[in-house]
Amino acid sequence: MSPEQDIPLWLALGVSILALLGAFLTLLGTIGLVRLQSFYQRIHAPTLGTSYGTASIVIASILFFSYVETRPVLHEVLIGIFITATTPVTLMLLGRAALYRDRAEGKDPVLPADEQADAVFPITSSRPHRQ
């Protein structure tokens, strides 16, 4: 932004609040990603950033550029749509892959701990636990 032209207060405040809110939500998501205990809990955390975190930063960008260029600038909407459409796909694939890997090692996360013995596959149970 060029310093010689000042922007109105409502725009500065609106864009600031939206950008801060989006960054804060995204930060919370990654804090959860680090601090939560199991993989299946962690898979929920990044969604904070990809739902309303992305949405509010995208809206902030649309607001600002629409004012500066004095015409509606909507191409950020493409990023919003793209993230909304792709995040569920990656998270679902990851969830299924994790479930598959856990089951292949004989630890079915769906069953409670005391029923684990029934879930052990004979072929894979002899394999040593690996990372």
Partner: peptide, 16 residues
Amino acid sequence: NTAILEWSLTIAQIML
């Protein structure tokens, strides 16, 4: 007003 925006963008960028 530009300064307000500059500062909050800096904070948001640090958070990210």
